[in-house]
Nucleic acid binder design. Structure first.
Lengths: 212, 212
DNA sequence: GCCAAAATCAAACGAGCGTTTTAATCTCTC
DNA sequence: GAGAGATTAAAACGCTCGTTTGATTTTGGC
């Protein structure tokens, strides 16, 4: 009885963990139930037993990782109420990049989001409304403040998408980026990217400064 | 003999056409040979007969669409040799956007490229070297000229990726964009986006103007 | 210690996949 | 128009997929 052969951490949690990794790597369609249960050291019937079917596990994994990412990288973290718009933009870009590029604990959050966008499954609508639109609105508010009062809604939207596009590029096109400019995706480099995108976008938005 | 039941356009070409559409929509793994041959009105054995196997057809489709896109949207089209860098940037952004967003004839070019990037198949290395790196080098040259002599290689690379990121966003995240800001992806809107990205990036790159 | 409930397991099912086989059909030359 | 070669067609093979089944083991309250 010295070592227990079956440590019995509940199977459900192990399935969530393994499901996150496998779904992130292969996508919903590409991931196989057998690979997931193998990684989770569970029986092939476990997914259906605990989550009804493959899609049920996928939904649970999305829910799980999104809440985990929100807890780890909250956007209002040490965000001063009366901080200037440039500082708030930098905080947004930095947090957003860490969320989607972090390889750590809830590693799959970024990969899952990108997979979902590139190859939409039936849950994309929920993901957009619950996760992406709040982000987009937060960013739009900052941009609106930076451009000034004379900006149309379209101007704000286009600028916000330019900023999100710069960030998402490093996630979407990672296989290409790593081939074009070899290097690692560690925290230091993420900070470099965040600083660059913030400075780049701030200059782009300050058009009125020189005109006035 | 009034109407010929079998017009007999060669099956190989029809397979390339249908393969392009299906691979673009479902990706290499998600596409099925049976769906392709159904759309091509061919027998299920035709793919193996003409292209050895599914991957052979995929390679042929990539080759075919890439050359088609290069022919339809050449980057050096009406590009004046002594045109200024801002004009060359606008031409680049505009051409690049049309290449990846065009829904017309070689419609699948953009979709295929994005699919390949999000879910790399063994041919990604070739795609990067033959298609993407030349683009990236062309853009880097323009950016280098815009920033000025005091720019490091890293500055140029980061700026070039910011510009590509803005463009690719509209292709990568199209399902999200269409949910966030409803609208169509017609030629007029592509021009609006191209103008915005060019102006946005030009302001971001002209940092020296105010400092000097 | 017993027993119902929960959990795990091996095995198999039906469907769809890429591919192969084998035969039938078309096409073109002589 | 006969025959050789290219093309198409139908059927099946072997495999993997998600899921289900039915039996077995483990668990927890009495």
């Amino acid at each position: 009885m010295a070592t227990r052969k079956r440590p019995k951490p509940d199977t459900k949690a192990r399935l969530l963990q393994a499901g996150g990794e496998v779904f992130a790597r292969y996508g919903f369609r590409g991931a196989t139930v057998r690979r997931i249960v193998q990684k989770a050291k569970a029986n092939v019937a476990a997914v259906n037993y605990y989550f009804t079917d493959k899609e049920g596990l996928y939904l649970a994994v999305l829910e799980h990782t999104f809440t985990a990412a929100k807890r780890k990288y909250p956007f209002d973290l040490d965000m001063d109420e009366n901080a200037g718009a440039p500082e708030r933009l930098h905080a947004f870009v930095s947090t957003f990049l860490f969320r989607i590029l972090d390889e750590g604990r809830p590693a799959w959050h970024g990969k899952l989001m990108i997979r979902e966008i590139a190859d939409p499954s039936p849950v994309l609508d929920r993901v957009v409304e619950e996760t992406i639109r709040p982000l987009f609105n937060l960013l739009s508010g900052i941009v609106e403040e930076l451009i000034g009062p004379g900006a149309s809604d379209e101007d704000v939207q286009l600028a916000a998408m330019s900023i999100m596009g710069q960030c998402l590029f490093y996630r979407n096109s990672r296989p290409v980026v790593s081939r074009l400019v070899p290097g690692r995706y560690d925290a230091a480099w993420i900070q470099v990217i965040a600083d660059h995108i913030t400075a780049f976008s701030l200059r782009a938005l300050q058009k009125n400064k020189t005109e006035a």
